[in-house]
Write a protein that binds this DNA or RNA. Structure first.
Lengths: 229, 229
DNA sequence: TATTAAATTCATCGCTTGTTGAATTGTCAA
DNA sequence: TTGACAATTCAACAAGCGATGAATTTAATA
């Protein structure tokens, strides 16, 4: 009506901040994260999520739209945090190595450490997220799209650093090794419990410190062997 | 009626061999394998399997029982073949190395080669099976149970060989490294297509030869580094 | 050919799914 | 207090699910 009023004359209860869905929104995301991580996209019903989050089913659609949009939101939420942690760690390693190139070991460490730290945090949601990451990374349906969308840019940063540390390597060498690293990492932190049975007690799935401190030399040695000839 | 007749006097059409479900049974298993590999257990409906196999839905239950029994059957079918191939390769390596212990490289090769060969066979079902393996290996629901049931005995054989090649290593070292290998292997051969996008064409998911020939030195170097101190 | 049972199809059951529009409740602004 | 709108609940929808018992077809025996 009033051409001068660009903002609608605000009346009634104001909406919350767009990004802040409040406590119930958090509950929904946490419940969805845990269930998606355990059973995958199709193994989870919105009613199960609602039940675990302690909210009505319809509220999920109201907040997050369709089921697949909820899935996207859950996956995106911690991807940002994880990547930021990795990039900060990589930058710190760069500072310390100056003016030399960062060593392969330090690069791998920067890549792995934020995930290992997250696993030991009081926020148990990170454990679920790691399992979700394994599910998506190994899925032909979700993998290329979601991993690409949220992790390819990060991969470029680390590949670039590795290229400086291993100047005689080809792109194919680097990317394949990066892929091996990704597979070893996601399965290990997926915490499926398989290694417990397989090793008859010698290893525990939730002993992330043991997994982490061996993975760095394992992966580093692999990179050196393949990319340094 | 006749207490003397323990066997019913056989008349009419005799049943087929118990294990032989015929061509339609094969079609069902192949269709289920492909769909389960792509979409996971809950992402596949029996109607989709029936449709792809060109049979009626009810026939699946008639042949294979419930949906989860079908899933078990699909997974078990090639697990036997794969393990047999690995054990034969390991035994051949043992013969060639005598009286020395088999080298780490040869052990890894025996572990990887049957899968790489299967990928290149004319039977495209193996590609699907590799993706299914990745799905199950990374699933907290299916992983411990199915992987344990079909692959733990094989793991013991290879761990034993590795222990001889790396006499200074602890059980924890060996099992963790084995786990890293398993993760790298299953993601790589899952053929999700992620590396194609990530590497901007430098690598192709279906180039199993490239993946295979780099994975052997990568994994071997990792084992030496962690288990040989 | 008549008999028998396996192989296959058909129709349907009870239940769950994601989604949505209407109704209700709660809370801030006027 | 009242009007307005966000937040939340409720009830129901059409579609699809796994499963199954009955009916039908097929083929080997007698």
């Amino acid at each position: 009506m009033a051409a001068t009023a660009q903002k609608t004359p605000r009346v009634g209860r104001p909406p919350k901040e767009a990004k802040d869905k409040g406590e119930k929104g958090e509950n929904i995301l946490n419940a969805a994260e845990e269930l998606f991580a355990l059973r995958g996209y199709d193994g989870v019903t919105l009613r199960a999520v609602a039940n675990q989050a302690g909210v009505d089913v319809a509220l999920i659609n109201y907040y997050f739209g369709s089921k697949s949009q909820l899935f996207d939101t859950v996956f995106e939420r911690r991807a940002q945090v994880l990547n930021q942690g990795r990039l900060v760690a990589l930058e710190q390693a760069r500072q310390q190595a100056q003016p030399e190139a960062i060593s392969v070991e330090k690069i791998i460490e920067a890549y792995l450490k934020p995930l290992a730290v997250a696993q030991d945090s009081e926020d148990s949601g990170w454990k679920n997220y790691c399992a979700l990451l394994a599910y998506i990374n190994n899925s032909a349906v979700w993998g290329p799209q979601l991993m690409g969308k949220h992790f390819n840019k990060l991969a470029d940063s680390f590949i670039e650093a590795l290229k400086l540390a291993l100047p005689h390597s080809s792109d194919a060498d680097l990317y394949w090794c990066y892929h091996y690293m990704s597979g070893a990492l996601t399965l290990t932190f997926a915490n499926t419990g398989r290694i417990d049975k397989m090793s008859k007690g010698a290893c525990r799935s939730d002993d992330f410190k043991a997994a982490y401190e061996r993975m760095i030399p394992f992966i580093s040695a692999g990179f050196h062997q393949v990319c340094n000839k």
